[in-house]
């Protein structure tokens, strides 16, 4: 499926989506509030995006936001799409998708651990990699840890 066809489909499912075609794959940006319903639509409706192969977050301190990035593939149609969700940097909250793609459970815990994004209704939102008493979120750009960090 070409990017244009994908765009048509996604506009039907999510009229407010913003598209960006500069990259390798079609980038779609949606609002945090609409994300859960859109995710359900992506997974179960025409596009059948059943394989969430990458879930991550990017910190943009200048514009004061965190960007959630979801990479999807459909194992039936083999089309890729990248979904981005902008979050408030100081109060980052987004609905979990771990009930739709189960791989998201661990990935979201990792993002919570390293970026501090809280995933609402996540079944078991705890730090995954760092210890429970660790302060701060290392992958944020303003993170400084004079004890543990090795400057390169």
């Amino acid at each position: 499926m070409t990017n244009n066809e994908l765009k048509d489909h996604i506009t039907q499912g999510q009229p407010s989506a913003v598209f960006d075609e500069t990259g390798e794959w079609l980038n779609v940006q949606v609002e945090a509030g609409e994300w859960k319903a859109f995710a359900n639509w992506l997974r179960h409706d025409a596009l059948q995006m059943d394989y969430l192969f990458c879930l991550t977050c990017i910190d943009w301190p200048q514009t004061k936001h965190l960007m959630m990035v979801y990479h999807f593939t459909s194992t039936t149609f083999r089309h890729n799409v990248v979904i981005k969700v902008k979050l408030d940097r100081n109060n980052a909250e987004i609905e979990t998708v771990s009930d739709i793609w189960r791989t998201a459970e661990f990935h979201e815990r990792e993002v919570y651990d390293l970026f501090g994004v809280r995933f609402l209704h996540h079944p078991d939102l705890r730090r995954l990699i760092l210890t429970d008493d660790f302060e701060g979120h290392p992958l944020k750009k303003d993170f400084e840890d004079p004890v543990n960090m090795i400057k390169l």
Partner: peptide, 11 residues
């Protein structure tokens, strides 16, 4: 998953 005993205390 999603129905286990770990309740989300943070939110």
């Amino acid at each position: 998953i999603g129905a286990n005993d770990g309740t989300n205390k943070l939110i």
